[in-house]
Amino acid sequence: MTPEEVLKAQQEGAAVLDLRTPKRFATEHLEGAINLQFNRADLVDRAEMVLPEDLKLVVHGEPEAIGKMAAKLLEEGGFTVLGHLEGGLKGWKEAGYNTVTLPTVDVDTLHESLGEWAVVDARDRFEFRYGRVPGSTILSWTEAWEGASDFQDPGKPVAVICGDEVRSSLVASILARLGHKPSLVMGGMVDWIDRDYEQEKG
């Protein structure tokens, strides 16, 4: 699909599924895009766990071969895929359309200023129980689509965390679609545990 067709589809309610890495997604993406990092093994399984089946999708993968492969797999899995973004982000910008960023925060900065953040954990519930950033709340990625609509603005900046960045970026992108302004924690719990920062358990 051309950038113009993608924009029109978005306006008619389709969602852009951005298949790139969270790092690249955070740097720049289409407004409203959902970040679900691609791999062939379980892309469809993860999509089924997160997205409503009647949501029409436009996929954005780079290189484009990833977009084409994802469109095929998602369609085989029962999703409606309208097409893939031709020309990628470069083509989108050349067509004169805007992009947005997802702000990031590293674990050291988060740790130093923990009181100023509302930390949202995007992992599975068992991982959250096992060990988490003190004071964090859970919005597990599998429950994020419904959960995000009930999400109350905590009155301070939201930082979304997972093990690395894959599930946190997904949840942050879903929150951002609804007008929230989350930040993505780079390095996630792996870095947090690496630094030996305190954890809350149970």
């Binding site: 890495t21 691609f38 791999n39 062939r40 990833i66």
Partner: peptide
């Protein structure tokens, strides 16, 4: 081919 390497890298969560 090009796509083979792109898919293999993506499957390993690699860029």
């Amino acid at each position: 081919g090009v796509d083979f390497y792109i898919m293999e890298a993506a499957d390993l969560n690699q860029t």
